[in-house]
Design a binder for these strands. Structure first.
Length: 602
RNA sequence: GGAGGCGUAGUGUAGUCGGUUGAACAUACCUGCCUGUCACGCAGGAGAUCGCGGGUUCGAGUCCCGUCGCCUCCGCCA
């Protein structure tokens, strides 16, 4: 019977055990050799007395790191002086009777046994199987598994059905770019990989499933970020006859359960709610980080007669203003730090960044003499600043200055160490249904076009879609958008109304979503749902700086898999079969570099 | 599509206002020694076309141009 290395304890002393695992580290003292043996459960120390090892077993000196071995031996108590309290199994050791090598290993391209090592991420991708052996990497996959188990148990207990939806589906050109898959039986036609199972889960509601969930793979051909991958997993949920409060209640209890079981953290329910408008006004973002106490200030009235021309101008024009942010202890911020903040502000679309600081040596500011002393005092007073504080100011068009200051709020909070510990969930509600896209010069759905309008605003759909609130809600944790959901249009007429308000012609509606509109004519129940980014949630729960850390096989910023070399060119015969000919610009120059393909064996 | 950072033995880094350095250090690797180590220790050894291509120069890891890869950010992400 095989035993796990990491599970052996003093209770096993005297037991004869069979261990299977990898050679983690070897400490060869000549006559006595210590070998740390590792399996999924952890480490145990083998002690080999060269003089007493069975003659039929290979010389222990043959062992190298990452060899796979079978060990038969006896568990024994370590001598008092040999106890290692840093190790879970530090009170015992195994005296092998035999060690059999099951598999050898070449010298390692990246270290496995060094917890301090931080090999280049490209190498970690390429040798992911070695990277996965590192206990800290494995621990995140174990965490992920346990989270998935809690989620499935929870939804099962709540009466939900897990239903799988297709990976080969229909392209819906708005929203994210689709990954396309050529269809052999229909030359010139393509499937799309799902950006989300949105339409299928609504169809499931029409199909009478009533309560659906899925750990759904979603694929979007967009550029990656630290918290975004081309492939990700969503906790996808849809409920018939449900109000937003019903959906929120279920998700709150799920979060509660996950945090309790995995982190022993006990969340307070219900989570606070904030409207989109209020979030934008107070935090300059639709995903406020409530761990930060600072809020944006409207300094427009205080700037009307301050002596600084551009502030006065911004304060008097109709759609511009001055937004401020008090920085507790900000008087100590260096000029170069302000320059960095201003650089960030400009990158985000602001014209510049101003500041007023009040220290024991007086008031100084980025305005020099232009800002009258009295006006400076007024500004500091309105902002509620104390001596030692500073105030940031941004002047310009309203939505822009709020959003930029919202980003600066995050920057300075990190800089001044003003981010409190904890898990601050918040529901953001009453999003606009549509927003004006400057590029296409028309309104587009902010969430997706199946979202129902807020019942109080439905009458505005035809006349003023920009003012219609969506019946939608986002779940935000510590400033990260975990997911969003909404009540859906469940009648054909209401869905058509929304499509029309978004400028979609009847022909287009019919062509792209005819099957949905038709389904809504056959007794579609009212329904609402939500989708939570599973990887993002795990990233936060495990304190990972990057989503790749919680995925077994993540992709690079260009969507490449460095392990397998995907994407790759294909055989001409494959293209021929699909009726596809490459455009000249798509034909790779063999000289141009084989960059992300694994190099041949040397 | 744009901005920035990084790329030097297997790995992680130093060297980067051009030259007296023979490209250094740690670790891993190889050889030897060692019976209580646990990031074992000690002694010795081998290992680098300084990402790739071009250019400037008497001379380039170092400067310039291009290119590839990874990371972060902007755009993008219904």
């Amino acid at each position: 019977m095989r035993r796990w290395c990491g599970d052996l304890t003093l209770n096993d002393v005297g037991e004869d055990v069979r261990l299977l695992g990898w050679v983690h580290r070897i400490r060869d003292h000549g006559g006595l050799v210590f070998v740390d043996l590792r399996d999924r459960s952890g480490l145990v120390q083998l002690v080999v007395d060269r003089s007493s090892l069975d003659a039929s077993t290979p010389e222990v000196g043959e062992l190298k790191p990452e060899y796979v071995v079978e060990v038969m031996g006896t568990v024994r108590r370590r001598p008092e002086s040999g106890v290692n309290p840093k190790l879970k199994t530090g009170w015992i050791e195994v005296a092998p009777r035999s060690i059999r090598v099951l598999s050898r290993s070449r010298p390692l391209p990246i270290p496995v046994a060094d917890p301090e090592a931080h090999p280049d991420e490209a190498l970690r991708f390429r040798y992911r199987y070695l990277d996965l052996r590192r206990p800290e990497v494995l621990a995140k996959l174990v965490f992920r598994h346990r989270a998935a188990k809690v989620i499935r148990d929870f939804f099962d207990e709540e009466g939900f059905l897990e239903v799988e939806t297709p990976m080969l589906t229909r392209s819906t050109p708005e929203g994210a770019r689709d990954f396309l898959v050529p269809a052999r039986h229909s030359p010139g036609c393509f499937y799309a990989l799902p950006q989300s199972p949105q339409l299928f889960k609504q169809i499931l509601m029409v199909g009478g499933i009533e309560k659906y969930f899925q750990l759904a793979r979603c694929l979007r051909d967009e550029d990656v970020r630290a918290d975004r991958q081309v492939e990700h997993t969503q906790i996808d949920v849809e409920m018939s006859f449900a109000t937003p409060a019903d959906v929120q209640d279920v998700m709150e209890r799920l979060m509660c359960r996950l945090f309790a079981e995995l982190l022993d953290v006990h969340l307070t329910l219900p989570f606070p709610r904030i409207t989109y408008d209020e979030a934008m006004r107070r935090y300059g973002t639709d995903k406020p980080d409530l761990r930060i106490g600072l809020e944006l200030l409207d300094l427009t009235p205080a700037c009307r007669d301050c002596g600084v021309r551009f502030l006065e101008q911004a304060a008097s024009a109709p759609d511009t203003g001055v937004v401020g942010l008090r920085l507790p202890g900000g008087a100590g911020i260096s000029r170069s730090e302000y320059d960095r903040l201003e650089g960030r502000a400009k990158e985000l679309g602001a014209r510049g960044l101003s500041w007023v600081a009040w220290s024991s040596s007086g008031i100084r500011s980025s305005f020099g003499r232009h800002l009258r002393e009295e006006a400076a005092r007024t500004l500091l007073g309105v902002a509620g600043a104390q001596m030692g504080d500073a105030v940031l100011l941004l002047a310009g068009r309203w939505p822009v200055v709020r959003q930029v200051m919202g980003q600066l709020r995050l920057k300075v909070a990190a800089l001044l160490d003003l981010v409190e510990e904890g898990w601050r969930f918040v529901w953001v509600t009453d999003f606009p249904l549509a927003e004006f896209d400057e590029e296409t010069r028309r309104y587009e759905a902010m969430h997706h076009p199946f979202t129902a309008p807020h019942p109080e605003d439905r009458h505005l759909l035809a006349t003023d879609v920009g003012r219609v609130r969506a019946w939608a809600y986002d779940l935000v944790l510590n400033g990260v958008e975990l997911g969003s959901g909404s009540v859906r249009n469940h009648t054909r007429s209401q869905q058509e109304e929304v499509f029309r308000a978004l400028g979609m012609s009847v022909e287009e509606q019919e062509r792209r979503f005819g099957f949905l509109l038709e389904a809504l004519e056959y007794g579609a129940p009212p329904h609402a749902g939500i989708a939570i980014g599973f990887d993002r949630l795990l990233m936060l729960m495990t304190g990972s700086a990057n989503m790749r850390e919680v995925m077994a096989f993540p992709k690079t910023g260009t969507g490449a898999c460095l392990l397998t070399g995907a994407p790759s060119e294909v055989e001409p015969e494959q293209l021929e079969e699909l009726g596809i000919r490459l455009a000249p610009r798509a034909i790779r120059d063999p000289e141009a570099g084989e960059s992300h393909r694994p190099a041949p064996e040397t």
